[in-house]
Write a protein that binds this DNA or RNA. Sequence first.
DNA 1: GACTCGCATTAACCCGGGTTTATTGGACAT
DNA 2: ATGTCCAATAAACCCGGGTTAATGCGAGTC
Lengths: 194, 194
Amino acid sequence: MNFSDLIGRLQSDAYLAPHICNTNHAKGSQIIKQGEVCQDVIFLRRGLAQMSYVTFEGKEWIKSFFAENSVMGSRRCQIMGEPSHFAITCLEDCEVTAIPYDKLRSVCSKDPDLMAVFFDFNEQVSLRKEKREYEFLCLSAQDRYRGFLEDYAHIVPRLTQAQIASFIGITPIALSRIRKRINQAESLGVAGAQ
Amino acid sequence: MNFSDLIGRLQSDAYLAPHICNTNHAKGSQIIKQGEVCQDVIFLRRGLAQMSYVTFEGKEWIKSFFAENSVMGSRRCQIMGEPSHFAITCLEDCEVTAIPYDKLRSVCSKDPDLMAVFFDFNEQVSLRKEKREYEFLCLSAQDRYRGFLEDYAHIVPRLTQAQIASFIGITPIALSRIRKRINQAESLGVAGAQ
DNA sequence: GACTCGCATTAACCCGGGTTTATTGGACAT
DNA sequence: ATGTCCAATAAACCCGGGTTAATGCGAGTC
């Protein structure tokens, strides 16, 4: 089941329909604010968004990026009803569909197909998180950057260096130094190959 | 449903019973080896275990610790059937119950109660991973150490400094320095309060 | 053209953590 | 008592990344 089909199916569900909310958000606006409770599952139909923490010193660290056709939300909010530890911010104008978690879950519990979709979805999230934990534990910032360029090739052109740096856990200055190192190594490599 | 009840219930399931395997593992032995495929869900009934990566330079980084009454396994193996990126090693003698993931899943799909148990379990894992990602992104090694002492107070006495260091992503030497800093700050604090 | 604004880069300095090697001290065996 | 093993600490040195401040350098705007 692809993303559009999934949304279509949810929207045509009689029980769910009145709880579904389609909204647009301008670039720069926040879909969820840090410290706020939002128990919706948020389907991003168009645009680009980030999840990020702002520390008490005012520094922003990006947890993840989401492009069109992805599903967002704070597990903590959805499951526990507690305030979100992070914000969701639009990096481009975004079109989203929001559905309360408990409503979605109760529909899933009656529809094995849907249940399977979200179970698989959770598994995918688990795998991504497992990979990210590995990268922070075992890789240098430089290797995390290389990995990022591969894994996120499709959205890299839509991001700034500062955003990428924040995602891999370093400052923009450090990222700039890494890019310099990589470029120098490459030109040396080319020269060495001649 | 508590842990023993859950295992009892699984063991008394006629379909599952022939696939369930109870084994003992000596301290130091590996329940899953890095690079091996093991599609079992592993219930740790007694003992203490770790999941860890060994990098190609031979350094070991610990992903997580598991004490009695917890559930282990490689999502990647279970779901994708691919080799595990990490090993599970016994830090004490362990008693485990292993059940193939696909068998367990098919039983769950017919038993909403069980499905809910594992769905909740996945949610708990997600929350833990979310927290760990936050700690690596936003906290210093020293703050991660403080957090570890709080969150894992119940197993700290059973671990070495080297294991704790590996879990929070630093060397034992660095942890020793941090402990020294904390002790000095504490004795200063006490002195200052007099 | 001259102005600003935002992004990326650079340089200079500092500090936390890695690396290597050495030392201490407890547990255990002989 | 002596030797061995291992965990923990300590000292010396190096390097990556943080911090601050300065410098390009386009894209708009007036």
